[in-house]
Design a protein around this nucleic acid. Structure first.
Length: 216
DNA sequence: AGCCAGGACTGAG
DNA sequence: CTCAGTCATGGC
């Protein structure tokens, strides 16, 4: 079975086993919290991101506009638990500046490649962060490739886990109906699977049960 | 005591 | 293009 054949089938298996995940995980559901989380989670455990997000929420920073009123030093203190706080405070400020001007327009626009380029032009926004924002904050049909997706592709789709980002993304997107709800669920299910039974980069009994023998 | 986590930037080769 | 070094905290 080819990867393109496996991808839709494995979604069914995951969905039937775990059910709907309703991502992105966040407290308020505010768009800004999703965007901030996407930046803060860069190479950082989500438990630490949650602490930073709670600090921001408690401080009343729930929109890009409110963040822009906060002195940079204060911002650094609030997000400290998420690590890399000096860079990330600048990244968040740049993002807030951008969104305070373009957020409305982004909601209605449909030219995904153009929006992606604009996000990628911001300091601190790479492909994964840009795509997470497009999918989870703006509901655009973009498949997010992260460390979990690569692990899943390597172990179960028998692909080269370190192939270029856009190539791996193209495989997923050409194997599925391009809808944000599907891409949202699929990525969430991959994360759920990895957290549940792919710890230490190896799969437990569940993976074998769902997909059959994969790669060592 | 390390090692790692839902990356991205910079500089060098 | 690939690669190492850098950034920082908290949990295990």
């Amino acid at each position: 079975m080819t990867a393109m054949e496996k991808i839709p089938r494995f979604f069914r298996l995951l969905y039937d086993h775990f059910g709907a995940q309703h991502w992105w995980p966040c407290v308020s559901g505010e768009r800004w919290e999703i965007v901030a989380g996407a930046v803060l989670t860069q190479n950082t455990a989500w438990t630490n991101v949650e602490k930073a997000l709670k600090n921001l929420s408690d401080a009343g920073i729930t929109t890009p506009e409110k963040l822009l009123l906060l002195p940079g030093e204060e911002l650094e203190k609030l997000i400290m638990p998420a690590g890399f706080f000096r860079q990330k405070s600048r990244y968040l400020t740049a993002m807030a500046l951008f969104l305070s001007e373009r957020e409305k327009e982004f909601l209605e626009r449909d030219d995904i490649p153009a929006m992606r380029k604009e996000l990628l032009a911001l300091k601190g926004v790479g492909k994964e962060t840009a795509d997470s924002i497009l999918l989870y904050a703006f509901g655009k049909p973009v498949f997010v490739i992260d460390a979990y997706t690569r692990r899943f592709a390597q172990r179960h789709l028998l692909l080269d886990g370190k192939m270029p980002y856009d190539d791996l993304q193209a495989i997923f997107q050409s194997s599925l109906e391009n809808t944000s709800t599907l891409f949202n669920e699929y990525h969430a299910l991959i994360v759920r699977l990895c957290k549940e039974s792919c710890l230490k980069k190896e799969c437990g009994a569940l993976c074998g049960e769902l997909f059959g023998p994969g790669r060592k």
